[in-house]
Amino acid sequence: MLRKLSVIAAVAGLLTAGLAGPALASGHALPAKEVKWSFDGPLGKFDQAQLQRGYKVYREVCSACHAMSLVSFRNLGDKGGPFYDEKYSAKHGKTSNDNPKVKAIAKEYEVADIDSETGDAIKRPATPADHFVSPFANEAAARASNGGALPPDMSLLAKAREEGPNHIYSILTGYAAPPAGLKIGDNQHYNKYMAGDLTSYWSGSHEHVPPGGFIAMAPPLKANQVTFDDGAPATLDQEAKDVSAFLMWAAEPKLDERKQTGFAVMIYLLLFSGLLYASYRKVWKNESH
């Protein structure tokens, strides 16, 4: 039996090695910095103050170029979201659409609509039910304004990168002066955590190609770029962490609900397994096998 178990363990080890492989194989970027998030672990949940700070960074910095088209304004006031307020929840017969903070945020944006009487194309202030308005009309316009590079939509960014919010945090804090000997193009910036292969731009020896790659986005954050409403010091590190946490929320708004449900389900299944095991012992008590 022990030998069997060791074989299974070896097989499982090989499998995990195989699954972990792609992350290491692509590019030669440094592995992302490990950040301790409030939403880590089986009971982790979003830190609402952090999400509010992160939203502010997104609103004042990122949203100039990055769309977040899958997120609606009302989501900001949903349970687990940055502006959730119990007064505006189903408990009190209301929804996040009634949340005054959410309403105020929506009103800052304008959306295209059709006047129902004249049929003319008009612009109206957004409502909480609308999706975040993209900064550019289409992909071509976005590329034209950004030197040919497309700023990715941020709705799912934290799930669309192998190392998730750690990756976003590392990129934001990973800009560095290009090492001497690295040929860098116009509108390009060197970042140690960007995926890529710099071999063909490197004049030094092939063993010492610098890690990372080129990114078209100029360093977007610096200290005191935003003023946090809760008085938290606006260091680069703090801003980067907060916006990464906010983007994780944007990508997976149901994370709190998922982890809480999971905890109850695991306990239920453990109890049920215990009962089944007891029944099994009882049924098989007098039978050799």
């Binding site: 998922r258 982890k259 389900v265 695991m266 453990l270 049920f272 397994s273 089944l276 029944s279």
Partner: peptide, 17 residues
Amino acid sequence: GFAMSLFLLLFAFFVFY
């Protein structure tokens, strides 16, 4: 049934965590 519930534990672990 016992084996199924152990398997469900593994399944739930992936789904929720």
